[in-house]
Computed example of a mutant assay.
Amino acid sequence: MLRRLARQFEAASARYAEDNGIERDADWFILKMQEEIGELTQAWNKRTGRGRRHGKSEDEIQTDMADEAADLLGHVLLFAHHHDLDLVAAIKRKWKFQVEL
């Protein structure tokens, strides 16, 4: 499932890059992860009273956090896919449990 999800993110990202004239070089993949962690942090700061809410409700902020976490996950998978990293094997090795991803 994880590999299939990575392929889906790859297809969507490649289309987006082509449509918008974006070059996805090796740096782009890690820089996008950094960008997304920043956006997730911004949503967290709103949630915890450390950032301006811009009139957003708790539910809207919760949705923003989920959206940014999904973006971060997508970019982690894109990074791994681009660099041919076996995340399933790494999870088994690092976290010491079997996964069916």
Rank of each mutant, 00 (worst) to 15 (best):
M1D: 04
M1W: 01
M1E: 05
M1Y: 02
L2A: 14
L2W: 13
R3N: 11
R4M: 01
R4A: 14
L5N: 04
L5I: 08
A6G: 05
R7K: 03
E10R: 05
E10G: 04
E10S: 10
E10M: 14
A11R: 13
A11E: 06
A11N: 08
A12I: 00
A12W: 08
S13T: 08
S13N: 04
A14E: 11
A14D: 09
A14V: 02
R15Q: 06
R15F: 13
R15H: 11
R15W: 10
A17V: 04
E18P: 15
E18W: 14
D19F: 06
D19W: 00
D19Y: 10
D19Q: 14
N20F: 01
G21P: 07
I22W: 11
I22Y: 06
I22Q: 12
E23H: 08
R24N: 00
D27H: 12
W28I: 04
F29S: 05
I30F: 05
I30Y: 09
M33I: 07
Q34W: 04
Q34C: 07
E35G: 05
E35D: 03
E35F: 10
E36A: 13
E36T: 06
E36H: 12
I37L: 09
G38D: 12
G38P: 00
Q42I: 07
Q42E: 14
A43S: 14
W44C: 07
W44K: 05
N45P: 07
N45R: 08
N45E: 13
N45F: 09
K46F: 04
R47Y: 15
T48A: 15
G49T: 05
G49F: 11
R50Q: 13
G51L: 03
G51E: 02
G51V: 07
R52N: 09
R53Y: 02
R53L: 00
R53D: 00
G55V: 00
G55T: 10
E58N: 15
D59A: 15
D59C: 13
I61Q: 02
Q62I: 01
T63M: 13
T63I: 05
D64S: 08
M65S: 07
M65K: 04
M65E: 15
M65V: 10
A66G: 14
A66P: 12
D67W: 12
E68C: 13
A69L: 11
D71L: 13
D71E: 06
L72E: 07
G74D: 02
G74F: 12
G74L: 04
G74R: 12
V76L: 09
L77F: 06
L77C: 12
L78F: 09
L78S: 12
H82Y: 08
H82F: 06
H82R: 01
H83C: 00
D84K: 10
D84P: 00
D84S: 12
D86S: 09
D86G: 08
L87N: 05
A89F: 08
A90R: 01
A90K: 12
I91E: 14
K92A: 11
K94W: 06
K94P: 14
W95N: 11
Q98W: 03
V99Q: 07
E100H: 13
L101I: 04
L101D: 14
L101G: 05
